[in-house]
Design a protein around this nucleic acid. Structure first.
Length: 207
DNA sequence: CCCTGATTCGC
DNA sequence: GCGAATCAGG
């Protein structure tokens, strides 16, 4: 594979969107994340950390510089930026970039940088077990497992961590199971058990 | 372990 | 220019 204008363009776009090198490599196909990173550097768009650069005269201070200031950190904190607003899209297989994305190639103004990782928001939200339609064993297993949940945050989830949500999303008391997921499944052993039911055990309770 | 990006250096 | 190998984190 070679770096055609097309591919380079995709690279630039995704990189500026904060996508990881591996994600970009995966998207492009035919290249490794190393190749992507290498290209990124060659293109010189590694760090959009444009300091005021140069600035041999960093002292814009006219004169009256009290100087008792103790400014430790700071330096690079582009403000939280409300980033992604409500995204009605449930999942959508196709990335689809409706973003007009006005090529942020030059301007000194720091790019958005919401660095919002592609989140596995996909997965059909598992119907929270209503406790009375699940096998006692499975339920017990789930309770046991949830005590040992790794309590991962959205960003910490990967393709091999259980994405079963635990707790109320509206409160602080919310996290994802995070235990090793069953190969190919989005959940761990215990949660797969309650997520994918035979549909037989819950034959219509003609109540 | 899993994953990041950064660098190096033979090709 | 390219990217695997390697490095340096988290």
């Amino acid at each position: 594979m070679s770096w055609t204008d097309d591919r380079v363009e995709t690279l630039k776009r995704m990189w500026s969107e904060g996508q990881s090198a591996s994600a970009i490599a995966k998207e492009l196909g035919g290249v490794t994340r190393n190749a992507v990173i290498g290209k990124v550097h060659r293109l010189g768009l590694s760090n959009r950390n444009d300091e005021a650069e140069a600035a041999p005269a960093p002292a814009p201070e006219p004169a009256p510089a009290p100087a008792p200031e103790v400014k430790p950190a700071a330096a690079v904190r582009p403000a939280p930026a409300p980033a992604a607003p409500p995204r009605p899209e449930p999942v959508a297989a196709a990335p689809a970039q409706p973003e007009p994305e006005a090529e942020p190639a030059t301007q000194p103004a720091f790019v958005p940088v919401p660095r919002r990782p592609i989140v596995p928001a996909g997965q059909p939200l598992p119907p929270q077990p209503s406790a009375n339609e699940i096998s006692p064993e499975a339920l017990a297993s789930v309770r046991e497992v949830e005590k040992r949940a790794k309590k991962l945050t959205l960003m910490e989830l990967t393709e091999r961590t259980c994405k079963w949500p635990i707790g109320d999303p509206a409160t602080e008391k919310f996290w994802f199971c995070g235990l090793p997921s069953v190969a190919g499944k989005p959940y761990c052993e215990a949660h797969v058990g309650v997520a994918f039911q035979p549909m037989s055990s819950r034959r219509d309770r003609r109540r």
